[in-house]
Design a binder for these strands. Structure first.
Lengths: 207, 207
DNA sequence: TAGATTGTTAATCGATTAACAATC
DNA sequence: TAGATTGTTAATCGATTAACAATC
């Protein structure tokens, strides 16, 4: 394990490894990179190199110790420390993300904000506040991530308000392209991109 | 424009270009790769090479004709032909995707299926059928994409049913790892991966 | 021992960037 | 002409794979 910035590709594969390892029967104590690679359709050397970056290695002939590997990946991905997030949004989208099960990944979606809350809590019991309490809440609590699910035309405004509250990162679920200062991290989920990629694969698959 | 399989990275950038070009004021008739690159924080040669792959080139000194470029990107991404999709899922998730605005990207989310529909139509008026009508519907209509939003433990079963109906692609919004035959395309949206990547960026940003 | 496995070093491959020529 | 731009060729960079040595 060294301290270089991990590549996005590695970061994308680690949760996949994690899910796979966790899906193995309880009785499994060891897992080899070779088998994991075969099961996931990846090269074995690739998996081994990835694991070398997050753990301190497996044992020849035995592979990696399952328990330790889970711990190592989770530690590397920082799943053990909790980051607090809030959601600002229109009703449906907001509800969904408020109640989304980010299982064991260290995200606490603490509250939702919307213009006119129709209920004081979401389905899973998370509090929903009127939008004008956003600033006070963020300052009173240690909120690091702001999730945006409003429509494209209101997204930049929400983003600016969150940035002004001192948020560290914006997780944008709106289709808008948002502009943030350099010290704020931004990540956009974009179903158009996924869709384009899916259709492209379909097209190529038909030939 | 040639006929090689486009790289996923190109595919991810094209919708970003598209969104940017469309966001320009109505009066804009030309746009240069140089300016676009600067606005989006990309290298200008990269943008120019990307555009060369989808259009038949810009004009020196003037750049690209906006209108044509939009058309070229949309054609390349196949946004003009319509693909029909259906959603199988639990209530909230299903509703959201049924009503999601895939603006102009050529996806028709035609219907939703769930075990016990609480209403005959979604908010935006899309029909919702009981799950046992899935097979009949898929065979009667020309459904190409099956979107899965059920919980992890039921996802593989839904996936198998959809595959048996002759679906061409599975768009998986459940956290499960799904197995499909070679002739079916699969794409999984995975918020854990996004979250891991976001937190990693945050961590590196703080240093 | 033989076989399964890890781990390392070199080769390959693909994507991006740099340098520069062309041209309107 | 000068400047803004495209487009091409070569260089660089990073990620993946191949080959192989080590070892339990």
């Amino acid at each position: 394990m060294n301290n270089k910035v991990p590549s996005p590709r590695l970061l994308a594969r680690l949760p996949i490894y994690l899910r796979y390892i966790k899906s193995l029967p309880e009785s499994t104590t060891n897992i080899s990179a070779t088998k994991m690679a075969a099961a996931l359709g990846l090269g074995d050397v690739l998996v081994r190199k990835d694991l070398a970056k997050v753990s301190d290695g497996g044992r020849r002939k035995l592979g990696y110790i399952r328990e330790d590997l889970i711990k190592d990946i989770e530690t590397f991905l920082d799943f053990n420390s909790v980051t607090t997030a809030i959601v600002v949004g229109e009703d449906e989208g907001k509800m969904l993300l408020l109640d989304y099960r980010f299982d064991d990944s260290g995200l606490d979606v603490a509250a939702g904000f919307t213009l006119n809350p129709s209920a004081p809590v979401s389905k899973s019991g998370k509090p929903i506040y009127p939008l004008d309490q956003l600033e006070d809440y963020c300052r009173a609590h240690c909120v690091h991530i702001g999730m945006i699910t409003v429509s494209a035309d209101r997204a930049q405004n929400m983003c600016d308000r969150l940035v002004a509250c001192g948020i560290h990162a914006i997780w944008n679920f709106s289709p808008a392209h948002l502009i943030v200062p350099k010290n704020v991290v931004i990540r956009s989920e974009n179903l158009s991109i996924s869709l384009a990629s899916l259709r492209m694969q379909m097209r190529n698959n038909e030939k």
